[in-house]
C-alpha cells in the first residue's frame, strides 16, 4: 500500500482528522523533511520506545512499554533475532512513521503530543487489521510493520522486569500448586 493511499485511508477512518491536521502545524522555523534511514540503529531506540508506549502505555501503578525499555528490546530483536524480511519490515515502518509524521504534522514522531502519536498508530493498527482480513480471505497480502511492532511490544513488555513484576503476579518461588481458587476481582494474570 502506498503512503498516499494510507492518508486517504486514515482520512476515511478518522473522519475530519486529516482536514484539521493543518491546525496542528507549528509556525516558525522551517521543518526539515526526514531522510529515510538505511538500517535500524541504536539511535532509533527512543523512537521504538515511543511507538511501543503508544501501543501499550502505562496505567495507574503499572508502568508502560517505554518505562520497560521495550525499545531496547525491539532493537535487540532487530540485531540478533529477526530474519531479513522482518528486519526490512521494521526498517520500512520507521521510515514510514517519520515520513507520515512530517507530512501530517511537520514534526518528528517523538516530539508529537500523545494524541497525535496515537492518531498515527491507530491508523497503522487499522491498516494492519485490514491486511489481516485480506490475508484471512486468502488474498495475497504483505505483512504490515504494525503487526510486527505490536507483537514485539507485547513480547518485550511482558518479558521485561516491569512487565513481569508489575503487570503480572510475580511469584518466582510459589512453593506449591493450588488447582482451584476463587479469582479475585481485578486480579492480574499469573506471570
Amino acid at each position: 500500500m502506498k503512503r498516499k493511499d494510507f492518508l486517504r485511508l486514515s482520512g476515511s477512518l478518522a473522519v475530519g482528522t486529516v482536514t484539521t491536521a493543518p491546525a496542528f502545524l507549528v509556525s516558525g522555523c522551517e521543518p526539515v523533511p526526514p531522510v529515510p534511514r538505511e538500517t535500524v540503529t541504536e539511535k532509533d531506540v527512543p523512537l521504538l520506545n515511543d511507538i511501543a508506549d503508544a501501543i501499550l502505555p502505562g496505567k495507574d501503578e503499572v508502568p508502560g512499554a517505554k518505562a520497560a525499555k521495550t525499545g531496547e528490546y525491539m532493537f535487540m530483536m532487530y540485531s540478533d533475532m529477526l530474519k531479513e524480511d522482518d528486519k526490512e519490515l521494521m526498517l520500512n515502518g520507521l521510515n514510514r512513521i517519520d515520513a507520515d509524521a512530517f507530512e501530517l504534522f511537520k514534526s518528528d514522531f517523538g516530539s508529537l503530543e500523545k494524541e497525535k502519536k496515537e492518531f498515527l498508530l491507530k491508523n497503522y493498527h487499522n491498516e494492519a487489521f485490514a491486511y489481516g482480513q485480506q490475508k484471512a480471505a486468502g488474498l495475497p497480502t504483505d505483512d504490515h510493520f504494525y503487526s510486527l511492532y505490536r507483537s514485539l511490544t507485547l513480547s518485550g513488555y511482558f518479558s521485561s522486569e516491569i512487565g513481569s513484576t508489575k503487570a503480572r503476579i510475580y511469584n518466582p518461588v510459589p512453593g506449591g500448586f493450588t488447582g482451584c481458587i476463587p479469582l479475585k476481582p481485578g486480579q492480574k494474570p499469573l506471570g
Binding site: I55, P57, K59
Partner: peptide, 16 residues
C-alpha cells in the same frame, strides 16, 4: 487484537 493503547493495556491486565 482489536485494541491499542489504554484499552489494550486494560485488556492484558485481566485474566482471560
Amino acid at each position: 487484537r482489536f485494541l491499542m493503547g489504554d484499552a489494550l493495556m486494560d485488556n492484558l491486565l485481566q485474566v482471560g
